[in-house]
């Protein structure tokens, strides 16, 4: 489609929004992977919530 004389401003706006959303999605996904890895490492050392719940009973 034809975006006219101000196409550069329109494309830059949408490109920036797409980039910002991609950064946000990458942030939540990487953060999730980091936390899950940390929980897994703790579980391998025998430190887990399941054990704590068991101990408290």
């Amino acid at each position: 489609m034809e975006l006219g004389t101000h196409a550069g401003f329109i494309i830059a706006s949408y490109a920036l929004c797409i980039l910002t959303v991609l950064v946000l999605v990458a942030w939540v996904r990487i953060d999730k992977a980091n936390q899950e890895r940390a929980l897994k490492e703790l579980a391998e050392q025998g430190i887990s919530r399941a054990r704590r719940v068991h101990e408290s009973r």
Partner: peptide, 22 residues
Amino acid sequence: LHLMAMRNEILRRRVRALRMRA
């Protein structure tokens, strides 16, 4: 994004609590 970030924050606090316990 908010639900995903909240889930991550809950996991982060669990990691912190378990590390303090260790």
